[in-house]
Design a protein around this nucleic acid. Structure first.
Lengths: 277, 277
DNA sequence: GGGGAGAGATGCCGC
DNA sequence: GCGGCATTTCTCCCC
């Protein structure tokens, strides 16, 4: 627990200096913007980032319960809470907290993003902790095993699709749509390959169908094959695929950060738990 | 800045007690699971929740750069970092930090989720702050303005679709698919309504088309109308809709938390910034 | 800014 | 568990 005055001063200064601010507080939250929400009293974790990002986390769950996008601005002040009564009872907190809450100095944190017409107001009863500091991080995450890595792999090794498959290009952003890999088979048919990094569903089939239809229309040709590449495919999707006359290839996206061998060996003691593929 | 020994002890105790743990640290991170990633040295914000959720945030951006799902387990210990050299230089930090880093006591935090085969390893150089505590929050967020609210509104006021529209049911989870609102028009035609809370795109049209096709097939009838309801619709989607012979209705999801008037008035000083709709 | 598509998407519900 | 679908999805890239 931290004194309210001290907490408010730290946060004020953090906002002024554009620092990363992290704090925990007992509060209730109202949001208005694309949607609207109200979150009754409870303990939450807050992050205000220098870019204006705002995150509110409950003590469980992966997603923030409330948030604001980068570019939002902040104001914290002492003030009257809303005209309804904040009670420990309606928050299902311990009855003993009632007195504590009523005696607490009231604090209001407002976040607003005028261009996006989004607003959050946090009524704070007390703070559990406050940190504010200039955190420095210019690093970018290096990720492997994405759909892009799959299409890279196919470009390097076209036989994964089939013998004599000749890929032209990758990630074609054309007016016909976005095609992962694009090439010809040995008979000269056009082949459009759509990659999915995990199980392919009927939406992936729809997507591929749309590409192929547009291509046929735009080029005035009929010899366009559709190939869906993924580690798995749902029964529905496979049925739909076969009905259209498209094909499926079982291809798994590459993993293991070859460029960062060090990072890989760093996880060596985990490797016994990994699947053998 | 907090002493490493104190930080590690706090986190260890937090893990043992199942508390909410929040800390800031200079670190590098390796991940292996559905994909793989490596994040070079930098300052980050960490949250470990009692349910096992793990979040790592950089000082900018809305999304966690690394994370683990609920159910993951944690271990923190002193130990050797990986066999590559962690230097202030490769993290683009100030040269003066080099000595500080080399002298720091090395700490490794591991998170693992065996069923999901997901693993994170954090090499920590030093801590900016550590909080651990028993945060209590049983509240659930009350959200309004969702797609479900739109279909509720249409059920209460079917004329929004058209005069004499008679809705049967909502959210039909049938083998034909999931239909938001389902009813008949005055001529006895079946009407399938798909709601979108924001701008409808061609995917929404595809979705609706799929419902209607399945319905026709399953019921052996042809008099099924498709209606797309949304505040906006993209030109492409509208063209596609009209080509199929479906219709669009301009309907905006209800907002303003009528059930929670208190929360609403709480945002009264924001209302002058809100659009007039 | 809109459109189109991926994401280590997540979360919810139903089977 | 998978499937289907919404999300204050977010993010990126291109037009």
């Amino acid at each position: 627990m931290i004194r309210v005055e001290e907490a408010v001063e730290k946060i004020k200064q953090g906002i002024r200096l554009g620092e990363s601010i992290i704090f925990g507080a007992l509060c209730q939250i109202s949001y208005s913007g694309r949607a609207e929400s109200y979150l009754p009293l409870g303990d939450r974790i807050f992050i205000i980032k220098p870019d204006g990002t705002f995150l509110v986390h409950q003590p469980s769950g992966a997603n923030p319960v409330n948030y604001m996008k980068a570019g939002s601005s902040y104001e914290i002040r002492y003030g009257l809470h809303s005209n309804y009564e904040v009670t420990a009872q309606n928050a299902q907190h311990e009855p003993g907290e009632q007195q504590e809450i009523n005696e607490a100095k009231k604090v209001v944190l407002k976040s607003s993003n005028i261009p996006l017409k989004e607003f959050i107001e946090v009524d704070i009863l007390y703070f559990h902790f406050v940190y504010s500091g200039n955190l420095k991080d210019s690093a970018k995450i290096q990720l492997q095993g994405t759909e892009k890595d799959m299409s890279d792999m196919i470009m390097r090794n076209p036989a994964l699709v089939e013998h004599d498959f000749k890929p032209f290009s990758q990630e074609e952003h054309t007016k016909y749509g976005f095609i992962d890999v694009f090439g010809t088979d040995k008979k000269g048919n056009i082949v459009a390959v759509e990659c999915k990094r995990y199980s392919a569903d009927f939406k992936a089939v729809s997507q591929l169908q749309r590409y192929v239809e547009r291509l046929k229309k735009a080029k005035g040709v009929n010899n366009v094959r559709g190939v869906l590449a993924s580690p798995k495919i749902s029964p529905n999707a496979l049925a739909m695929l076969e009905e259209i006359g498209f094909e499926w290839r079982s291809i798994t996206p590459p993993k293991y950060l070859e460029k960062f061998n060090a990072a890989q060996t760093n996880l060596s003691d985990f490797s016994e738990n990994l699947p053998e593929n």
